[in-house]
């Protein structure tokens, strides 16, 4: 039956109301998990706070495994959901640029909005930077439009690329994520003994 809106179970007029409600839930979860603080977020890269890794990977594995169950029970037609298209080289480049932005700015777009919401000026400045970055990208677009559109592989999934079933991927991600959780728990304990001035 699902996805509900594209299949007409919910009239399209509700689209924006639902967007608002889902957004509220998203913002609430991000803020309540501690993503409104850049020092919490970057802790994952220095070993003193792995909250990003925990929340992010738990979310990914829960959603992955959940999608397979939803598909099995016939609630969700996986062939109808939006699969992010793959542009190999531009995406790798974009990922590296974002990684640099992540470590310098300490936020990602979603978390910076929740930081603004609780009064963090660095979040606001980050969002201004985001705005300027996208604006600059648009202005310079003709320079790299060929590169931007290169390597188009279409809306492919991991299964399409490798031929391995989604169950294997879900299980693999779960095993990697769970082992990461246990390892980082030990790392965090050790690093925190050394860092004293950090107060969440």
């Amino acid at each position: 039956m699902g996805p509900l809106i594209p299949n007409g179970f919910i009239p399209g007029d509700w689209n924006f109301v639902i967007a608002l409600l889902l957004g509220i839930a998203f913002g609430f979860i991000l803020e309540a998990s501690g993503f409104s603080s850049s020092r919490n977020i970057v802790g994952v890269f220095y070993g003193y706070n792995f909250v990003v890794l925990r929340v992010f990977f738990t979310a990914v594995i829960v959603a992955m495994v959940g999608l397979i169950y939803f598909d099995y029970f016939g609630w969700l037609d996986l062939s109808q959901i939006f699969i992010l298209p793959t542009y190999l080289a531009p995406m790798i480049t974009g990922g590296v640029i974002m990684g640099l932005g992540f470590i310098l700015g300490g936020f990602c777009p979603g978390t910076s909005f929740t930081a603004i919401a609780i009064g963090k000026m660095d979040g606001l400045v980050f969002t201004i930077g985001l705005y300027l970055g996208i604006f600059a990208f648009s202005l310079g677009y003709p320079l790299y439009s060929d590169f931007y559109n290169s390597g188009d592989m279409g809306n492919v999934t991991l299964m399409d690329v490798t031929g391995i079933s989604s169950q294997w991927f879900a299980f693999g991600f779960v095993v990697i994520a769970l082992s990461a959780f246990w390892v980082t728990m030990l790392i965090e304990k050790r690093v925190r003994k050394r860092i004293t001035e950090y107060k969440f």
Binding site: V60, F82, M98, I103, G110, G129, G133
Partner: peptide, 28 residues
């Protein structure tokens, strides 16, 4: 960092929530 993230998210067709989280969760 924000500016870099802005540029990168256009090349990457999404940021951490759109591409990395939702994209990975849907096996993209």
């Amino acid at each position: 960092g924000g500016a870099l993230f802005g540029i990168g998210s256009q090349f990457g067709r999404g940021c951490t929530s759109g591409a990395a989280l939702s994209g990975s969760a849907t096996f993209s």
